[in-house]
Design a binder for these strands. Structure first.
Length: 839
RNA sequence: GCCGGGGUGGCGGAACUGGCAGACGCAAUGGACUCAAAAUCCAUUGGGCUGCAAGGCCCGUGUGGGUUCGACUCCCACCCCCGGCACCA
């Protein structure tokens, strides 16, 4: 028998498939389309086992759709802009372009070893001007629509990477850079923003897409919509001066006993009384310093300083003191609040500390009028609230909001935690922002006809922390497109999340030089049907690309509002020690080593078998051997019966699927009326396995699909000698190979060929099953007495409830355990269980 | 603190819509083959008790309660773990 030699057969088939363009997706095919996309990799240099974990199961799922007769688009590319390339340039003197392209070349080779059905002809590399020109084009379109703007704002700056970061790229309590872990600092800089907040409400709507609850919640929390009322407070003895506060609790306005401004609030200086000035200044200084120093002391006591001015409560005319306190943030709402200690925990602490009155305006149930031990945050009955007293607070909320609105003092408003997307990066290796600063005309966009603004190739990479573009005179100095005078280019480049916001559209027509993508091809392929990738992108990439799609819709480029209909997040593969893989831990698994020993099919199948795909989990070098043994058994069970004279399939052709659909054989072996019991059992195994594997792959339950195939192969091995040569056996072997084809494509192709079946197994129809055969002929009926299992009997599958009942009642063991007691009830679960309940 | 997810053998994990808990794999133990080893194959493998044996009995899905003929699954309370957000007014 031929030995299973994965390394040789895998190389052989990969070459052949590529030569034959086996997996090419055809634009405008008559078949239904299916666009299956996996997040493209960053070309870091080596293909990591994590890439395999993300991609191999995706490939299997995409292959399933193909075998089921869909025209599948399964593209790949590289997220090729980004900091590591530039850092390599600074450290090793290699140009980012060269570094990136060499990495891509190496990763292409490694990716090919996976045997996936990617279409390399559609490959997209984002650092190619052919690609990033459209980033610039989109930017200009957004600028035209008022969605791109430049503003001076306090922004997050990473001192190690020497660049600004989007709010989303600053992580954790310690506020560190998402990329390098360095604590960020605040800087006041003029930067470009994209107005994602204009779409905040729409981004909260996930109807029409099947995305994991987890991601939807993450995005919803990130957007952080809260609904309330913004109203005006006038300041006593400062005619014409007022400030606005935002509250989600207009029902508590009567309970305001103080007001707070953020330390950076513009009115602070103006309103501070002369005798308070020194103290207020000191507080402001302290607050400013604190935002720069680590804010690690989490349970910091709330403090503040009275500024010596008083605000007037618009509901009852009361005069309340104004404070500055750093628990109020300038960046949220209006940077000022009403202090309602009875109904807000923070205000409560603050009022306690400074001995401010605590007025209850929403009475807790059964409140006896005594002071509250802590802030009461729930609903209740309004108290001390003028004409609103006695109303349920829920109603008071609306009535006071109405009242403020009618009097022109305030209006209902939604506030968002989401900020506009800061896209300026002070680095070289990204898309140049196509803008020009002219001393006469101001900020002028680069005309579309002048695109792309190319990165100069001869930039110098010095460890100064200054952008090479800023130091590159020939790039920086230009002519103003409006007046023709001397002007300067914007030297900042775009956040690389711009690239990934629309790359799925580029795959549709990657070489189109006229527009970002061909709208006709787009109408056929778009949107993405299934997207897969890690959950770490939940509030960055996945939010940005939804935003981008909505902008494209408003531009008339697409007719839908959501870029990806279904999303699946796979888990993270860990080192053998259960820890995150890292070079310093020395627990990194190199996929190439395994590919070169046990083969890509084994690595693929093992990654799918390890557990639920969404769960990730530790790598286990013994576990992979078990999967390899399984493939070896598959090989043996097929090969050992290859020589049998009856083993050749009678009718086989392009459409020779095993099931009903497109079946060339009008009377498959499994439907014959005169089959033996053994044949019936074999056919039952075949069909129930087809059903199980089909259902599991559909739901991305690769682990249980493989477990079912293992059971099937164990069974086939047991009955091999008795069954070899029968038609049911032949059907079984064919089905086995077809079911394996998406997960382990090489061994499937090799075995398919060895059986004398026509090339290629990957052009075959996915087997369908016969529901009758999939059901078992015999069922094990569990007999219980009072809920305890007392016997198990084999019964025919279609046994009636009445028969099951009498069978149970006459069963010897059942009678024994009834112990002479009366029957109170008999519960029958058809085909499964009978429970005799005694009195 | 809030939001989301999760706790099942020595390990990774199965279990339809409330109906045989532990599929499949790893590890382990015993055996076959071998001069020997590796590989392979066969058997056993949740815990406890009991029987010469075939077998029998009890306990068991984080904890405590509840609903039900019957609960890993549903309800209530709690503990622990993972992820996210966090002075957001």
């Amino acid at each position: 028998m031929v030995r299973y030699d994965p390394v040789t057969i895998e190389a052989k088939w990969q070459t052949r498939w590529e030569k034959d363009r086996l997996y090419e997706a055809r634009d405008f095919d008559a078949r239904r389309k299916y666009y299956f996309l996996t997040m493209y990799p960053y070309p870091s240099g080596d293909l990591h086992i994590g890439h395999w974990y993300a991609m191999a199961p995706s490939d299997a799922a995409a292959r399933l759709w193909r075998m089921r007769g869909y025209n599948v688009l399964f593209p790949i590319g590289f997220d090729a802009f980004g900091l590591p390339a530039e850092n390599a340039a600074i450290q090793h003197g290699i140009h980012p372009y060269q570094w990136t392209m060499e990495n891509i070349a190496r990763m292409r080779r490694q990716l090919r070893s996976m045997g996936a059905m990617w279409e390399w002809s559609r490959e997209v590399v984002t650092c190619d001007p052919e690609y990033y020109v459209w980033n610039q084009w989109f930017f200009l379109k957004m600028y035209e629509r008022g969605l791109a703007y430049r503003a001076l704002a306090p922004v997050d700056w990473c001192p190690k990477d020497h660049t600004t970061l989007a709010r989303e790229q600053v992580v954790g309590d310690e506020r560190v850079c998402e990329r390098c872990g360095t604590p960020v600092i605040k800087k006041n800089l003029e930067q470009w923003f994209l107005k994602i907040t204009a779409y905040a409400d729409e981004l909260l709507d996930f109807s029409g897409i099947e995305w994991p609850e987890r991601v939807r919640t993450l995005q919803t929390n990130w957007i952080g919509r809260s609904v309330g009322v913004e109203f005006e407070l006038t300041v006593q003895d400062h005619p014409g001066v007022s400030f606005r506060v935002f509250t989600t609790r207009p029902d508590t306005v009567y309970g305001m006993t103080f007001a707070v401004l953020a330390p950076e609030h513009p009115l602070v200086d103006r309103l501070t009384a002369p005798e308070r000035r020194a103290e207020v200044e000191a507080y402001k200084f302290k607050a400013a310093r604190q935002s720069d120093i680590e804010r690690l002391s989490t349970e910091k006591e709330r403090d503040g300083v009275a500024i010596g001015a008083f605000a007037i409560n618009p509901m009852n005319g009361d005069r309340v003191p104004i404070f500055v306190a750093d628990y109020v943030l300038l960046t949220y709402g209006t940077g000022a609040i009403q202090g309602v200690p009875a109904h807000d925990a923070r205000d409560f602490d603050f009022a306690r500390k400074y001995r401010l009155p605590i007025t209850v305006v929403v009475a807790p149930p059964g409140w006896d009028g005594r002071p509250l031990p802590e802030a009461y945050l729930e609903e209740g009955i309004m108290a001390n609230s003028g004409p609103f007293t006695g109303l349920p607070s829920r109603e008071g909320w609306e009535r006071i909001a109405d009242d403020l609105q009618r009097r022109g003092v305030g209006q209902r408003k939604a506030n968002y935690r989401l900020h506009d997307w800061l896209i300026s990066r002070q680095r070289y290796w990204g898309t140049p922002i196509p803008m020009i600063f002219c001393p006469r005309c101001g900020t002028v966009p680069v005309p579309e006809s002048d695109l792309p603004v190319r990165l100069p190739e001869d930039a110098e990479f010095l460890p100064t922390g200054e952008s090479p573009l800023k130091l590159h005179e020939r790039f920086r100095r230009t002519r103003c497109p409006q007046c023709g005078g001397e002007a300067e280019r914007e030297t900042d480049t775009m956040d690389t999340f711009i690239d990934s916001s629309w790359y799925q559209y580029r795959y549709v027509s990657p070489r189109d030089a006229q527009r970002p993508f061909d709208p006709q091809a787009g109408r056929y392929w778009l949107p993405v049907d299934q997207y897969t990738g890690g959950v770490e992108h939940a509030v960055m990439h996945l939010l940005y690309t939804r935003f981008w799609t909505k902008v494209m819709r408003d531009m008339g480029l697409v007719s839908f509002s959501e870029p990806m209909l279904r999303l699946f997040n796979q888990g993270v593969i860990l080192g053998e020690d259960g820890e995150k893989m890292s070079k310093s831990r020395g627990n990194v698994v190199n996929p190439d080593e395994y590919v070169n020993s046990v083969g890509a099919d084994t690595v693929r199948a093992y990654l799918m078998f390890i557990g639920p795909w969404e769960g990730g989990g530790p790598w286990n070098s013994r576990g992979i051997e078990g999967v390899h043994r399984f493939l070896q058994r598959v090989w043996n069970v097929v090969h050992e019966t290859n020589g049998n004279p009856h083993a050749r399939s009678a009718g086989s052709g392009r459409s020779a699927g095993t099931g009903e659909r497109g079946n060339a054989d009008p009377q498959p072996a499994s439907r014959g009326g005169s089959r033996s019991r053994d044949n019936r059992e074999l056919a039952h195994w075949t069909h129930k396995t087809i059903k199980k594997v089909t259902d599991d792959l559909e739901g991305f339950h690769f682990n249980t699909a493989i477990a079912a195939l293992m059971e099937y192969v164990n069974y086939l091995t047991r009955v091999k000698s008795a069954q070899a040569g029968s038609r049911a056996w032949q059907e079984a072997r064919r089905s086995l190979i077809l079911l394996l084809a998406p997960m382990t494509p090489h061994i499937a192709e090799e075995l398919w060929e060895s059986m004398g079946e026509p090339y290629s197994v990957h052009h075959q129809q996915w087997p369908s099953y016969d529901a009758t055969l999939a059901r078992a002929e015999l069922a094990t009926l569990v007999l219980q007495v009072d809920g305890k299992v007392r016997d198990r009997v084999q019964v025919p599958a279609g046994l009636t409830d009445a028969d099951a009942k009498s069978l149970a009642l006459s069963n010897e063991k059942v009678r024994k355990f009834m112990d002479g007691r009366q029957v109170a009830d008999v519960v029958v679960v058809p085909g499964r269980l009978v429970n005799v309940v005694t009195k």
